[in-house]
């Protein structure tokens, strides 16, 4: 790869990475706060959303998936999607989500 495409391929500066890290740290703080503060009915959904946001941010920015070839995205999310599908189905047959 020539140097001119380098910047395009990994389109983030170090300052950008630090910004992402600060956001991640803030979300983590919010997550931990659910342990001390009662979120009521919002507890589960908010935790799940925060988890997913953190996951996607690390994968998209730190792992460059957002800037890289779509083939990588396809390979990784195929694995992730299959994992979600088979394991959630399996847990459902154990009536995991009913109780």
């Amino acid at each position: 790869m020539s140097t001119s495409t380098e910047q395009h391929e990994h389109g983030m500066t170090d300052a950008g990475y630090i910004k992402i890290a600060i956001i991640l740290a803030a979300i983590t703080a919010l997550e931990v706060s659910t342990y001390y503060v009662d979120f009521g009915p919002l507890f589960m959904p908010s935790l799940m959303i925060m988890m997913v946001v953190k996951f996607v941010m690390v994968v998209s920015y730190f792992m460059h998936l957002k800037f890289d070839s779509k083939i990588f995205t396809f390979l990784f999310y195929t694995g992730l999607g299959l994992a979600l599908f088979v394991y959630i189905t399996a847990l459902a047959t154990f009536k995991f989500f009913i109780s």
């Binding site: 299959l82 599908f85 459902a92």
Partner: peptide, 18 residues
């Protein structure tokens, strides 16, 4: 092929929906 595995377990008491 990833969505049919439980047909090996029909006799194991999975429940009617599954």
């Amino acid at each position: 092929g990833f969505g049919v595995w439980a047909h090996h377990m029909f006799a194991s008491g999975l429940g009617p929906v599954s």
